Simulated assay, not measured.
Amino acid sequence: MAVKVALVTGASAGIGEATALELQRLGYVVYAGARRVDRMAGLRDKGIRTLALDVTDEESARQAVATIEAEQGRIDVLVNNAGYGSYGAVEDVTLSEGQRQFDVNVFGAIRLIQLVTPVMRRQRSGRIINVSSVGGEIHTPFGAWYHGSKFALEGMSNVLRIDLAPFGIDVVVVQPGSTKSEWSGIAAEHLRETSGRGPYARAATNHAKAMTTGPLHDNASDPSVIAKTIGASVTARRPRTRYVTGYYARPVLTLRRVLPERGFDRIISRSMG
């Protein structure tokens, strides 16, 4: 039986790094991709293959997939994990920054899907895991660009799931809740820089503080929790279409589904300062 091969993007830290290790533990030949290869030295020391991969660069993505195909002759799993959160009032965020948010979170994932799909089609098998967020179904203050990108990724995943099923390719969405990583600190700092002055200053400052202190931050799940869920989605004989995982994920999605929209708006605004 052929050894199975996985590519994990955004693998230099957090969920991506933990997922690379989890898939290796499950017996996969793992390729870890990130812009900063030096930050993946620990993975390389553990026998994981590392690749320079900028998901926003067509040639970088093409070269990464070509390298794996040349070395292994197959690609069984793609974990689209690369992403970040661009927070700020819509009128304060430049369109170029909004476009970058979509280029990383949406077009970067789709670019890799386009590249691995022909390989998986020839194999008549494959699994694409799109790491979204509970933010793909809910909304929080100042997160219009971020949530918009995750809503888009989830919508495209729904269609891809239908289109690729006849070729034996599964498309799965993973929706993490609050997770210990650099993500919240980077998003909070971007919010302060973007809307920390002017008419939104007070609300933006309070929201940035809530992202980096308090229960949501203090009780955040370790990235290994999300990685184990991704591992389960990869190895399941018949995977679910969505996996909800991590701190606060199920409760907040339940609130979103049962409350009227304005009621949810009030609760989420208060909880985020």
Rank of each mutant, 00 (worst) to 15 (best):
G98I: 04
R262D: 14
Y87N: 04
A203T: 06
V159I: 05
G85P: 01
N80I: 12
S125M: 11
M211W: 10
G148H: 01
A82I: 08
T241H: 14
E137H: 15
L43C: 12
R127N: 09
S271P: 01
V65W: 05
E189T: 05
V77S: 07
L53E: 01
A6I: 04
K4W: 07
N81F: 04
A203H: 05
G155I: 12
V37W: 10
R124D: 05
R121D: 12
A165C: 00
R262H: 13
G42S: 14
I48V: 15
Y84L: 09
D265P: 00
V234E: 05
Q175F: 06
S96P: 04
N206L: 14
Q99Y: 02
Y87K: 00
A208L: 01
N81H: 03
V171E: 11
G214F: 00
V90G: 07
F102G: 03
G198W: 07
G214Q: 00
V30G: 03
H139L: 06
E59C: 11
A201T: 09
L164A: 02
P141T: 03
V159T: 14
P118V: 05
V119L: 13
V131F: 03
Q123F: 11
E91T: 00
A187Q: 03
S12Q: 02
P251N: 07
I138A: 01
S221F: 02
E69K: 14
R127A: 08
G88C: 04
P199M: 11
F167Q: 09
R100F: 08
H207Q: 06
S195E: 05
A109R: 12
T213P: 02
M40Y: 11
G143S: 15
D222A: 15
G155Y: 01
I138M: 06
S233L: 11
A20V: 12
S184Q: 13
R257W: 06
I15F: 03
L26E: 13
N105T: 00
T19P: 10
T9Y: 07
Y84H: 09
Q101H: 08
I75C: 03
L115R: 12
A6S: 12
Q63A: 07
I129R: 00
R124P: 06
Y243P: 11
G16N: 10
R44W: 02
T213M: 13
A11Y: 09
N105G: 02
L259R: 09
E22Q: 15
D103V: 09
S133V: 08
A6H: 08
L23I: 03
D38N: 13
M272Y: 07
V134Y: 05
Q175N: 15
E189W: 03
V79Y: 01
G273R: 06
G98F: 13
A82T: 11
R240A: 15
